[in-house]
Amino acid sequence: MKRLRIGLLIGMTALAWVMVSSSIPAYSQEDITSLKDEAFGKGQRPPAVFVHEAHNEKAEIEDCNVCHHVYKNGEKVEDESSEDSRCSDCHNVKKGYPTRPLMKAYHDLCKSCHQTKKVGPITCGECHPRKAASSAHEAEEGH
């Protein structure tokens, strides 16, 4: 009885491992772009993987200001966008006020959207892979 139960446990764990890990993709030739912001300096983790074109295509984002937003008096200005300026121009790395600190701004922006849409990476290692190549795809596959 006991042995059976342990066997079952091992089997289920293995199955779970296979299911969750099966999203590991084959190596891809596509170019990779990342959210490497000079303002961070040397970060503890590699910059987040972000293939701009592919992402937007997949996510069907057409308006730039979905991400490159402009805020005035705490309100998002609908028809303005800020792709001409760097994120760190508004989002200070260390000091948050009045805007979010840079890292938090990235995290919140990306993750909130991924959460809402229920697609895209939301855990640390998905955006900040140790081995850029393999995980970049993983990040993309998620779309």
Binding site: W17, V20, S135
Partner: peptide, 12 residues
């Protein structure tokens, strides 16, 4: 999970 060797999300 931190080292992301195999099955990152599983370990996470």
């Amino acid at each position: 999970a931190y080292h992301q060797w195999l099955g990152y999300k599983f370990w996470l």
